[in-house]
């Protein structure tokens, strides 16, 4: 594994203000690694916010404890990677395949958008935690 050049971690209740905190973390992260191209910053930020929002909107608690959102982001020389987790959550319901919403649909575009934005998306479930791992191979100047 190559060296981690910059990173950010967030963990908190899965609620709207968590999305703003993660977005602020991403904005400050890019200031630490100005060599990451604008296109990579833009696409990766969008994918991370989409995934985190998906958890806030859809993850259901498995028991008494509320769902927590965790976002761990690492920047390596040619790789951007985020682990976006739902703690204390039930396994996702139904197939995790992108929907094909009609033109007038107001939701259902998130998963397809995430897949279009990053190089790979994988899902893991371990110890009651759902984790999406988003990776984007970044361009170098």
């Amino acid at each position: 594994m190559t060296e981690v050049l910059a990173s950010r971690s967030f963990r908190g209740l899965a609620a709207g203000d968590a999305i703003e905190s993660v977005h602020n973390d991403l904005d400050s992260l890019w200031l630490d690694v100005p060599f990451v191209q604008d296109m990579d910053q833009m696409t990766f930020t969008t994918a991370v916010i989409e995934s985190a929002s998906n958890i806030v909107q859809h993850a259901e608690p498995a028991g008494q404890e509320p769902v927590e959102l965790g976002v761990d982001i690492e920047v390596r020389p040619t790789l951007l990677q985020a682990r976006v987790s739902a703690y204390h959550a039930k396994p996702p319901f139904g197939p995790m395949e992108p929907a094909r919403p009609g033109e007038e649909a107001e939701s259902g575009r998130g998963l397809a958008l995430i897949q279009a934005l990053v190089t790979t998306v994988t899902f893991e479930r371990q110890d009651g935690t759902n984790t999406w791992v988003l990776s984007r191979t970044s361009q170098q100047d």
Partner: peptide, 16 residues
Amino acid sequence: AFMDSSGLGALIGCLK
């Protein structure tokens, strides 16, 4: 400066 699929959905709702 930023819009996600929720924001897009809201614009479509407003268009309708």
